[in-house]
Simulated assay, not measured.
Amino acid sequence: MAFLSSRRNKTRLAPELDDQELGRLLKSLVATTRTGTIATTDLCVAQISRLLAQEPDDWDRRTHRLGVLADFLTESHVPQSWAAREPGNAHALVLRAWTQTSRARSQERPQDTGDALDCCLRAAELSPQDPTPWVVLLRLARLQRWEQPQVFGVWNEVIARDRWNRDAYLSMLGYLTPEEAGSRLQVLEFVDGMRARMPANAPCAGTELTAQVLQYQSVLERGGFEALVARNHWSHAMAAQALDRVATTWVQPGFLRHAKARADLNLLAYALMAADRRREARPIFEMLGGTVTAWPWQAGGDPLTEFDQAQRRAAPGS
Score class of each variant (00 low, 15 high):
residue 37 T to G: 15
residue 190 F to K: 00
residue 258 H to G: 12
residue 196 A to Q: 13
residue 176 L to I: 01
residue 244 D to G: 10
residue 121 L to V: 10
residue 185 L to Q: 12
residue 232 N to E: 08
residue 245 R to P: 02
residue 86 E to V: 13
residue 288 L to S: 15
residue 284 I to P: 00
residue 248 T to N: 15
residue 56 P to T: 04
residue 231 R to C: 06
residue 177 T to Y: 09
residue 71 D to H: 07
residue 244 D to T: 06
residue 108 E to C: 01
residue 3 F to W: 12
residue 32 T to H: 06
residue 114 G to W: 00
residue 299 A to C: 04
residue 26 L to M: 07
residue 57 D to I: 00
residue 21 E to R: 14
residue 189 E to M: 06
residue 44 C to F: 01
residue 186 Q to D: 14
residue 79 P to W: 09
residue 280 E to P: 06
residue 309 Q to R: 11
residue 253 P to A: 07
residue 32 T to L: 13
residue 103 R to K: 13
residue 254 G to H: 00
residue 294 A to F: 01
residue 294 A to E: 13
residue 214 L to M: 11
residue 179 E to C: 11
residue 6 S to F: 06
residue 238 M to Y: 05
residue 79 P to H: 05
residue 166 R to V: 12
residue 67 G to F: 00
residue 168 A to M: 04
residue 69 L to H: 05
residue 157 E to F: 00
residue 16 E to K: 04
residue 295 W to M: 08
residue 39 A to Q: 08
residue 217 Q to F: 11
residue 114 G to T: 02
residue 120 C to F: 01
residue 160 A to K: 13
residue 239 A to Y: 01
residue 28 S to Y: 06
residue 297 W to Q: 08
residue 233 H to D: 05
residue 194 M to C: 13
residue 69 L to G: 07
residue 90 A to M: 02
residue 14 A to Y: 02
residue 12 R to M: 09
residue 111 Q to R: 10
residue 71 D to K: 10
residue 60 D to T: 14
residue 160 A to Q: 11
residue 316 P to L: 11
residue 115 D to H: 10
residue 270 Y to I: 11
residue 163 R to V: 14
residue 258 H to T: 09
residue 206 G to S: 07
residue 219 V to K: 02
residue 175 Y to E: 09
residue 9 N to C: 11
residue 108 E to L: 03
residue 73 L to E: 03
residue 11 T to V: 11
residue 79 P to Q: 12
residue 146 W to T: 14
residue 68 V to G: 06
residue 109 R to W: 02
residue 262 R to W: 09
residue 61 R to T: 12
residue 193 G to N: 08
residue 42 D to V: 08
residue 200 A to N: 04
residue 48 I to F: 08
residue 284 I to E: 02
residue 211 A to T: 06
residue 111 Q to N: 06
residue 115 D to C: 11
residue 261 A to D: 02
residue 318 S to I: 04
residue 45 V to R: 08
residue 213 V to S: 05
residue 116 A to C: 09
residue 316 P to Y: 05
residue 28 S to A: 14
residue 232 N to L: 10
residue 84 A to V: 07
residue 220 L to V: 06
residue 48 I to W: 03
residue 51 L to R: 10
residue 270 Y to P: 00
residue 94 V to H: 03
residue 197 R to T: 15
residue 205 A to D: 03
residue 236 H to E: 08
residue 260 K to V: 06
residue 197 R to Q: 15
residue 142 R to G: 15
residue 250 W to D: 13
residue 46 A to F: 02
residue 61 R to W: 10
residue 220 L to N: 01
residue 11 T to L: 09
residue 300 G to P: 00
residue 293 T to D: 13
residue 165 N to T: 09
residue 130 D to R: 03
residue 176 L to E: 03
residue 91 H to E: 09
residue 83 A to K: 04
residue 201 N to I: 11
residue 163 R to I: 08
residue 25 L to I: 10
residue 174 G to S: 12
residue 184 R to N: 10
residue 109 R to V: 15
residue 278 R to P: 01
residue 180 E to S: 15
residue 127 S to T: 06
residue 203 P to L: 05
residue 111 Q to M: 05
residue 5 S to L: 01
residue 238 M to T: 10
residue 232 N to H: 03
residue 230 A to Y: 04
residue 292 V to P: 04
residue 293 T to I: 03
residue 233 H to W: 14
residue 207 T to P: 13
